[in-house]
Simulated assay, not measured.
Amino acid sequence: MLQLNVNDEISRLRSVVLGTAKSCGPVPKPDEAYDPKSLEHILAGTYPLEEEMVKEMEAFAKVFRKYDVEVFRPEVIENCNQIFSRDIAFVIGDKLIIANILPDREQEVEAILHVLEEIDEQNIIRPPEEVHVEGGDVMPWNDYIFIGTYTADDYATHITARTNKAAVEFISQLFPQKKIRPFELRKSKNARENALHLDCCFQPLGKGKAILHRNGFLVEDEYRWLVDFFGKENIFEISAEEMYHMYSNVFSISPDVVVSERNFTRLNNWLRENGFTVEEIPYSEIAKQEGLLRCSTLPLVRE
């Protein structure tokens, strides 16, 4: 049996689900796009090719093997995009919460049944229907759980609004011993302004550092709270252009090892200057779907 254990974003990773780009289906039609960045690339004729994305994910898998991480992959469903395993479930402590995601993605959960069978079913939680939540919005951080949300009245009109008020309340009840800290995110049909998930504008790192993008947050005070929490000197503030390219969506294998996109020169240099080992891989094709390294992973066990 798998003993789930995830209490932060950085402790030594032992077991993870990494999505798959195999058989991810034809280029979606414009009205099938889940997010503005995908739509942009569909319309421009630059939507990523499956063979390129498969290569990128294999490069990620190779890094996990290098660090002796147990890697599960979803069963391949024909013509189904299964890259972003963070969307379908997430682990806090010893509980795996199945996300209530866009209805036509439910089969992605079925593709990881072989993983769920390794987990004590008492530790698998399915939230009630009114709870909308995706793993990209949920970050356990020791005593805290950070949650990206959108609670304005027009929530239902935004396909980019993925985690609602009911989710914040549900997680608060599920983990009464944790401090729940929600953040209102900026939702937009413009890919250069839209924060699809919390991990698109914020990422805590080891050594007390964090990556942050001010304009991803709707409420200035909530952004300021993070600046105060980590300390201004510890924050790598990214530009709108860098947020668009998903600079904050890197992935920590341990407190001092970060997997990053090889083109993120400014970030990768800063990480190295601050004592991190940076495992650079190509991931720019997958980034065209408004998701990157953290989005592709579902950590199950961290030490």
Rank of each mutant, 00 (worst) to 15 (best):
M1D: 09
N5G: 07
L13M: 10
L13I: 08
L18Y: 01
L18S: 05
A21D: 06
A21L: 02
P26R: 06
P28G: 08
P28M: 05
P28H: 08
K29F: 12
P30S: 08
D31C: 05
E32H: 07
Y34L: 13
D35F: 05
P36W: 04
K37D: 03
I42V: 14
L43E: 13
L43S: 00
T46Q: 10
Y47P: 04
E52P: 00
E56D: 10
E58A: 14
F60C: 09
F60A: 12
K66Q: 14
F72P: 05
R73T: 12
P74A: 02
V76S: 05
I77A: 05
N81E: 06
F84K: 03
F84G: 08
I98T: 09
R105T: 03
E106Y: 08
Q107F: 00
E108S: 06
E110D: 14
E110G: 01
H114N: 09
H114V: 11
H114T: 05
E117L: 05
N123M: 04
I124P: 05
R126F: 14
R126N: 11
P127N: 07
E129Y: 01
E129I: 09
E130R: 13
V131M: 06
H132F: 05
H132R: 15
V133I: 14
G136R: 06
P140Y: 04
W141M: 12
D143Q: 15
F146I: 12
F146W: 14
F146Q: 01
Y150K: 01
A152I: 00
Y155W: 14
Y155E: 08
A156G: 07
I159M: 12
R162I: 03
T163K: 06
T163S: 04
N164Y: 10
K165E: 15
K165D: 12
E169A: 14
E169F: 03
Q177S: 13
R181N: 09
E184H: 13
K187V: 04
K187Q: 08
K189G: 02
K189R: 11
R192G: 06
H197Y: 09
L198R: 07
C201S: 13
G208Q: 07
G208L: 04
K209V: 00
I211K: 10
F217I: 12
V219N: 13
E220L: 06
E220A: 13
D221I: 00
D221K: 15
L226C: 10
E237W: 03
I238L: 10
M243K: 13
M243R: 15
Y244T: 02
Y247R: 08
N249M: 10
F251E: 01
I253W: 01
V258D: 02
V258I: 15
R262Q: 15
F264T: 01
L267G: 06
W270E: 03
L271P: 02
E273K: 14
E273Y: 02
N274H: 15
T277C: 02
V278G: 09
V278F: 07
P282L: 03
Y283T: 13
E285G: 02
I286E: 00
A287L: 02
K288C: 04
Q289L: 15
R294S: 14
T297R: 03
P299W: 11
R302Q: 03
